[in-house]
Design a protein around this nucleic acid. Structure first.
Lengths: 165, 165
DNA sequence: CCACTGTAGTAGAAATGTCAACTACAGGCG
DNA sequence: CGCCTGTAGTTGACATTTCTACTACAGTGG
């Protein structure tokens, strides 16, 4: 099912809405508020400790795991769930900072390969301990194994459903 | 325990890091990716359907639930987990659009009360069905009750831990 | 009363993200 | 081939968020 020209969903009249139950409200808000607080503290601590933004850090993580420390721009955008435009801007800044390098893609003349430089590798090796520690402190260590597993499972389902459409 | 002047955490040497187990990695990434995708689609659909940003929508929700449809700026910022500066800018734009109004606070001359206008109320009444529907479609309806409860519980714990510090 | 420290809110500049074109190439099909 | 549609990536204008510094008032303790 592809999008129609105007991707507007059918307007929902107030009478038809299935409002959230109080319990659903509570859980949705806990998720929303917890996520806002968590992402905020992770971004702040990463920036203070390493002068990297969360977006830059995640770019480097994905590249560090890719064969040849290289990924196509679109693959990177897909994995990060960032818009192509956003990624272009981020990568341009990172390239100016010497963390990555861009090269035309041999197989597909439209494509651009993005490669992590040695400096980029160095930066993420330095940054990883601090960030892992922050994730541990604020997320992993405050939850039981079961709670973390449930969290991952639930959001995995959500992510999968969204990637379908 | 108060913060020291330089709130920098002790640097973490690579040797001391407790890296995440593969399972922890997986769950953390599922959470992170799912959240990015979910927030993105919710923001996009809300904007398309109602021309409100998620931030504006949430301001209106909090105000609509407050006595007198009024909250202090700092209370609003605290509930939304937004910085005071960010809130000031958001509210200024919303005030220009006629959705809220600011008045000095009688009890505390430093304070500012933020009140939702009738137009603001009207806008959120119109917007709510669409947004609830989107939350349902992309989050609530793809999870079982147990999964949603587990998600809310886990993130509630995370939020609580962060609000302590 | 006065100094001191902390809280509330704001403002402008800089950084970052979004949106809407736009170029260029790929792949299918007459 | 030549046309058409779709994908990859970029760009610049615009909107939002962050950072930092600032003003003003509250509350505490001498």
């Amino acid at each position: 099912m592809t999008q129609t020209a105007t991707p507007t969903r059918a307007p929902v009249n107030a009478a038809d809405v299935r409002w959230l139950t109080p319990a659903q409200q509570t859980h949705w808000r806990a998720y929303r508020d917890g996520t806002a607080l968590l992402m905020d503290v992770l971004a702040r601590e990463l920036d203070e400790d390493t002068a990297l933004s969360l977006a830059e850090y995640e770019v480097l993580v994905r590249l560090s795991e890719a064969p040849g420390r290289t990924l196509r721009m679109s693959e990177l955008a897909g994995e990060l769930a960032h818009s192509r435009s956003r990624l272009t801007h981020t990568i341009r800044r990172m390239e100016e900072a010497g963390l990555v390098q861009r090269n035309p893609c041999a197989l597909d003349a439209r494509g651009v390969n993005c490669t992590m430089t040695d400096l980029g590798l160095q930066r993420i090796v330095e940054a990883a301990p601090s960030h892992v520690n922050a994730v541990r402190t604020h997320l992993i260590d405050v939850l039981t194994d079961d709670q973390l597993r449930a969290l991952g499972t639930a959001m995995g389902i959500v992510a999968h459903a969204l990637r379908e459409s």
